[in-house]
Amino acid sequence: MTGTILEVSQLKTSFFTENGEVPAVSDVTFRLEKGEILGVVGESGCGKSVTSLSIMGLVEQPGKVVGGHIAFKGEDLTQASAKKMRQIRGNDIAMIYQDPMSALNPVHTIGAQLMECLGLHHKATRKSARRQAIECLERVGLPQAEQLMHYYPHQLSGGMCQRVMIAMAMICEPEVLIADEPTTALDVTIQAQILELMKTLNREFNTSIIFITHDLGVVAEICDRVLVMYNGRVVEQGTIHTLFKAPKHPYTKGLIQSVPDVREKKQRLYSIPGMVPSPGEIKKGCPFAPRCERALAQCYEIEPPFIKYENGDAVRCLLYEAEKKEVTTHGRIGDFTRSPQPKKVF
């Protein structure tokens, strides 16, 4: 873990619709360190996926990155040429998608799709590309890799497809891997295997991973740091320990509270009141204010500042503006020795 590999600052991505500009992501700032797994959590529509697509340069019409910077190893990707972006995509930054079945092309063999990556980025011979592809399939734990090369996606199970996707993302040994809800479409046992696989890859290749999910349990299991997003903004960021042990933002608290605990026989599962506002719906004040139990009058008026702490944690909430110092201290006290067990904590 040495140095920052990706730095996103004040990223703003908007969609231009008939009703004018609708910001899907505004003022997203974070850093990804070499070799770390960064979790990004939030409800659907909070801008997690748009953030990752913005990094990849894959935001489609009518969307567009309209502000901020994405620095990858010092190079600003928002200013990079289309050609440069193509060289980076797949090779330096790769992505794993939510639904592996539909993310694979149904009419090409697994082998062809794997080798395509190599063909695009390394002028590998067919033979060596084939060998690498098979190795890669074996590495993600797929049996009979050689035969698998000739299979079509519809002949594989969801879990196998996701392993293929991971192999495909890893085949060019990228430095950053963005995993967009890679386990959502899979059942629980397969989920665990995939998570294990990703941890292993992270360890073996020192690949930095941005792990996007709405599942806090999964975050707790594999991430080093977490970013909580709400309505296109980062509302809180922190290490896994501080975040689970002492969440600051009312939204984070709500999220953690709404994780079901199998050991406690609660009558009703907690849920955050209200609805997720659609992007651009709230024009003034804190977008979470209408759902916030602790909202103050000024929360509806003033855009809350992004308060950064010395340890790298940050929160976007008016409540902490005054007690910034105190909380910072509290955060520092945060126990690094205890393994984070969010379900026990709450």
């Binding site: 990849m56 894959l58 193509r86 060289q87 980076i88 995509r89 797949g90 090779n91 790769a94 992505m95 998608y97 939510q98 639904d99 539909s102 993310a103 694979l104 092309n105 149904p106 090409h108 395509e116 990556c117 695009l120 980025h121 996707m165 495909m168």
Partner: peptide, 20 residues
């Protein structure tokens, strides 16, 4: 989705169109 995948691999527009 697979079109996004292809672009994510770094395939050009032409290649994405013709091949996928």
């Amino acid at each position: 989705d697979y079109v996004r995948t292809a672009r994510g691999k770094g395939a050009s527009e032409w290649k994405t169109l013709s091949h996928h």
